[in-house]
């Protein structure tokens, strides 16, 4: 099992957002979490990645048998968690390649492996950049500096490819993408699917799921997972909206 979330309650500034999430994801599985705005989707991925500002008031997250909530964000990254940001941050002056090299080598150090030298690293980076059709010139630019919306999202998937996580969280990676960019991003993700790697896609829209087929679809509403099903559930949501899920759960 990759990750097990049990009865997770969390609040932001004293306001309860998550109200008892239960979610288990096995190795190699792809899960989609869908839900209307403000349902708590981004909160969940931010808590898994370790962002400040969220208070877990109840429940637990067990990742690869360890207590995830005790780890710092960088430890989580070393242990294989990756968050593709909904809004990737621009960091002018920090070189894209330097960032990734520092990240990869910190992880290798944590694993007791030797650090990669510049040449080895550059080879990996070039190969992975091709995967998301990212121009080589992006490698030497500042992190996301002056990138278009689509380029930022591609850069997230590129970073994911380089860091080779065990559990990838894609937070609304599809929003704002045109069809070409969506295809490129989805290709990148599909390429990285493996028996050892789990993926969680947080999204509003069914269209991403046309490109990346999920094993399981969850509906997150009002801080709880109200319904779980197969990929056909996404199509039903697209057609009928979300209200029927709430009514069904209340019945």
């Amino acid at each position: 099992m990759m990750i097990k979330i049990e009865n997770l309650h969390a609040s932001v500034d004293g306001k309860a957002i998550l109200k008892g999430i239960n979610l288990t994801i096995g190795a190699g599985e792809v899960h989609a979490i869908m839900g209307p705005n403000g349902s708590g989707k981004s909160t969940l991925s931010n808590i898994i990645a370790g962002r400040d500002g969220y208070t877990v008031t109840k429940g637990s997250i067990t990742y690869k048998g360890k207590n995830l909530l005790e780890m710092s964000p960088e430890q989580r990254s070393w242990e294989g968690i990756f968050l593709a940001f909904q809004y990737p941050v621009e960091i002018p002056g920090v070189n894209n390649t330097y960032l990734l090299k520092a990240g990869v080598n910190a992880k290798r150090k944590h694993q007791g492996l030797q650090e990669l030298d510049a040449m080895e690293f550059l080879q990996i980076v070039r190969e992975k950049a091709k995967l998301v059709e990212l121009d080589q010139s992006f490698l030497s630019r500042g992190v996301n500096e002056g990138f278009s919306g689509g380029e930022k999202k591609r850069n997230e998937i590129f970073q994911m490819a380089v860091l080779e996580p065990s559990l990838a969280l894609l937070d609304e990676t599809d929003s704002g993408l045109d069809i070409d960019a969506l295809r490129i991003v989805a290709n990148g993700v599909n390429h990285l699917r493996s028996k050892e790697r789990s993926v969680v896609m947080v999204t509003h829209y069914q269209r991403l799921l046309d490109y990346i087929q999920p094993d399981v679809v969850h509906v997150l509403m009002d801080g709880k997972i109200l319904k779980t099903g197969g990929k056909e559930l996404a199509l039903e949501l697209e057609e009928r909206g979300y209200d029927w899920v709430r009514q069904e759960a209340a019945a």
Binding site: S72, E74, S77, I91, V94, L100, A102, A106, V143, L163
Partner: peptide, 19 residues
């Protein structure tokens, strides 16, 4: 953002100060 990529707090501070 930097920490989520595996960079330690201290190293992240260095990078941002430099930048």
């Amino acid at each position: 953002y930097l920490k989520s990529r595996g960079i330690s707090e201290e190293e992240a501070r260095q990078m941002l100060t430099f930048a």
